[in-house]
Each structure stands twice: as C-alpha cells, then as structure tokens.
C-alpha cells in the first residue's frame, strides 16, 4: 500500500515537472517558430539558441510588482488564476505517456491513473477551464476584462459541444473510453484512428484550438480591441498563472489528440516516450503555425462557424460513424 502511494507520488511529481517544463519551452518554441515564419531571428541571447529564455522570463515575472487594481473583487480576483491553471493540469492524469515499463524490479504503468472513463474525465476537467477566464474577467472590474470574460464563456460553451462530439466517432469504433485501451488498439500506423476518422481529427483540431482560446480563435484576449482581454488587470505571477495555464491546456489537448488519433506512444524503433513527445511536438508546431498564419476571426464569424458549420459537421460525422458501426456489426 505504502509502496503504491510512493510510486504514485513520484509519478505525479515527474509528470508535473515535465508538463511545466514543457509549458516553459513551448513559449520559447512559439517565439522562435513565429519569428522564423516572419523572417525574424527571435529570442536568441539568453543561453545557446536562447534556451535559457523561459528561465529568464520566469524570473522576470516572479520579481515583477504584483499590482492589484482598486476596483477588484478581491477573493475572486485572487482565485481566478488558480482556477484557470488547475483544470488544464488535471487533464494529464489520464494521458498514457508511455508503455508500461519496469524500474528497479517494479512494474510501473505509463499512465498516472487508467480510468475506464478516461475520455469523459478529460472533457469534465477541460470544461472547468472556462471558469478561470470568466471569473478573472468579472472580478477585475474593468470593461475590457469583462468583455473578454463574457466572450470566452460564450465561445467555450459553443465549441465544447462540437469538441465532445468529434471524439464520439472514435469511441464508437474503439468501443472503449479508456485512454490506455485506445492506444493499445492503434498498434500499427494503419490502425491509427486518424485514418478511420479523418473528418473527426480535423474537427477535433479546430475545436481544440477554440477551446484553448488560441489564434485564430483568441477573441477573449484580442489585443486590437480589448487591450489584454480577461487578463488586462493582472500582472506578475498572477498573470503568468494564466500564461502557464494556457500553454498547459495546449499541451493537454495535444496529448489527448495524440493519444486518440495519432496512436499515442506507439511507433517503431524509437522508445515509446520519444514517439509520444515527437507527436505532441508536431501538434504544438501545428498550433503555432496556425497562429503565425491566420488572422483572427470576427466575433459573429466565430459564432456562425461554431454553430452553423462545425457543430452540424461533427453531428454528421457521429451519425455516419454510428451507421457504419451498426452496419458492420
């Protein structure tokens, strides 16, 4: 019993540290990739190839003055960054990072916890992420923040429905909700669910970007019209909590997408964890690529796109998949 708890605790610490490091280096990756795409150099002074930039950024953010504006609702204002940060971290609990392995003679599973409803668990925790943004917008007592918060709640509710539906197709085919089982079923490249659910994968990517409030769906923090959106009034560490939360959410949806559509840690020659990291890196690169390429949606376009295009398409995908699953028995 005690041994089990210790192993679990070590795994939790390893995953949290890995995810936070991943978040930090995603910021560097984003800046370098966007710079590359815009024919600039990007941050390259701190350390070789700018590898110490995230560290410098972190230090800067910690030591900045924490300014709390006069008109805020104090409790909610302090709580919002934490609420924004936690749900995206929770999602990693059911992601299978690697195959089971043995270390010091003990069998260790590659997942923190293998829930038999893993996929629904992920939707449950990611659906909570909206509160951080919403409450931040409301408690700041600033009109820009409030507008950002209201936008984000409307946007995330609208896209959550399609987001959930995109994965139903895979679940129908795989007949399981366990992330581990999903990976086990994608043992060769031809068995990856992306080939059986291409439309589902595209829809998943789109909805995931909208769910994580990233460009071109980043209306809650549209600089050109809302200053900083929901985090206008935040500074120092509180601001960076939103920042880390956003990148953790990006990493989480990349991990989930990798697990569900791209075969998770399965792959030839290289060790499983390397495959997993490579695939997640690919997803993150795609995310950044989109950001550097597309202009932001207008708000009515965003709503029309979500409700009149994505949602019917996701519904259609589910219906067609269900039909074929029934037909083939």
């Amino acid at each position: 019993m005690l041994e089990m708890i210790i192993i679990a605790a070590i795994k939790v610490v390893v995953v949290i540290v890995a995810v936070l490091t991943g978040c930090a280096y995603s910021t560097l990756l984003e800046r370098r990739v966007v710079a590359f795409m815009q024919n600039r150099v990007g941050p390259n002074t701190a350390g070789p190839w700018g590898l110490l930039t995230p560290l410098a950024d972190g230090l800067k953010l910690i030591f900045k003055e924490d300014i709390v504006p006069a008109g805020v609702e104090r409790m909610t204002y302090a709580l919002a960054p934490v609420i924004a940060f936690i749900p995206s971290m929770l999602a990693f609990a059911v992601v299978p990072f690697t195959s089971d392995f043995s270390l010091f003679g003990r069998e260790i599973s590659g997942t923190l916890s293998d829930l038999n409803i893993g996929v629904i668990y992920i939707f449950a925790v990611t659906s909570l992420a909206v509160y951080g943004i919403c409450l931040a917008g409301w408690s700041s007592g600033s009109k820009y923040s409030l507008l950002g918060g209201i936008r984000s709640s409307a946007q995330m509710i609208s896209y959550e429905l399609s987001y959930g539906l995109t994965i139903v197709g895979v679940i129908l085919i795989a007949n399981t909700l366990s992330m581990r089982e999903l990976v086990a079923q994608q043992d060769t490249v031809t068995h990856w669910f992306i080939w059986r659910q291409p439309l589902g994968f595209l829809l998943y990517l789109t909805c995931a970007i909208a769910e994580t409030n990233r460009a071109p769906f980043d209306l809650p923090e549209a600089e050109s019209e809302l200053v900083g959106g929901y985090h206008t009034e935040y500074s120092s560490m509180r601001f960076s909590m939103f920042f880390i939360g956003e990148y953790a959410a990006m990493l989480a949806v990349s991990c989930v997408g990798t697990t569900i559509f791209l075969g998770g840690w399965q792959g030839p020659f290289l060790p499983p964890i390397v495959w997993f990291v490579l695939k997640v890196f690919g997803c993150m690169f795609f995310y950044i690529w989109l950001r550097a390429t597309f202009p932001r949606f207008r708000y009515d376009q965003l709503m029309n796109f979500g409700w009149k295009f994505l949602f019917p398409l996701a519904l259609l995908n589910t219906m067609v998949t269900a039909f074929f699953v029934l037909w083939k028995g």
């Binding site: 939707f123 449950a124 659906s127 509160y131 919403c134 917008g137 209201i150």
Partner: peptide, 19 residues
C-alpha cells in the same frame, strides 16, 4: 457527467448571465 453537464455547461451559463 455531473461535472461535464452541470459544473461545465449549465453553471457557466448562469455565470454568463450574471456577468
């Protein structure tokens, strides 16, 4: 499902209206 439906969707709408 309780979290997805109530905490994740319905309460967000409540908060949305209040805001």
């Amino acid at each position: 499902v309780l979290v997805v439906v109530y905490a994740g969707a319905i309460m967000v709408l409540f908060l949305f209206v209040i805001m």
